[in-house]
Amino acid sequence: MSLILDRRTLVLGAAATLAGCDRLAKNEAFREVLFSAENFHKWAQRSLMARNALAHEFRPDQISPFFRPNGTANPNTPEYKALWRNGFADWRLRIGGLVERPLALSLADLRAFPHREQITRHDCVEGWSAIGKWRGVVLNQILDAARLRDGARYIVFRCADDMGGGQGYYESIDLTDAFHPQTILAFALNDQPLRVANGAPLRLRVERQLGYKHAKYLMQIEAVATMDGIGGGKGGYWEDHAGYDWYAGI
């Protein structure tokens, strides 16, 4: 008969039931179930798509009139300000971790790699979308130049924006997305050098996932075997602090 009561409660006042759901969500075992749906979605999506299935690329006339920046609009740390004042001439992207050949690349070095241009849709976890034209270096070129060592499973991106308490923004992707042909380190948006609000001087584009994976203000790329010991261990700043899914394909 509890089902009938549930219905009655539902009609009389959703609030009580919702409070019940909230209590349920605090139960450790149930929470585990809620948080593991991500694994199903990742498995299902990866099973349905070809490894290199491309995100849709749009026509130039479909670009959003204004590309909405989100999250940090300016890192505003003394270090970042110094780099910005100098036109990022002193900025270096450090590539390390489980690689044979650690690198430190300037913007000019990066531009010497083959470029890719793509007009793609940026989908925020909040629900909005913006279409922009990105230009950048294909990440797999850089990883090949640094030569990943055996055991590397994830690529971690560390950023210049301090999210408070000395914790920098960071994100991570696995090798499937890291070697995807549309995964680029973008230095230009809509034919202009990346603006500070959009992640200058360099940001990640990982087109088959939601916006928070697209780390801005890149400083360091690290190949790792596990996320343990990095940040809160969940693979990204929002994953650690807000409980966002690490796999953001959905």
Partner: peptide, 22 residues
């Protein structure tokens, strides 16, 4: 009174939604 969870929490709303949806 009508959202789950009963306060603004996008991550938890998504966990509920994406668990129930499949």
């Amino acid at each position: 009174w009508i959202t789950l969870p009963a306060h603004y929490n996008l991550a938890m709303s998504r966990h509920w939604h994406l668990t129930a949806a499949p």
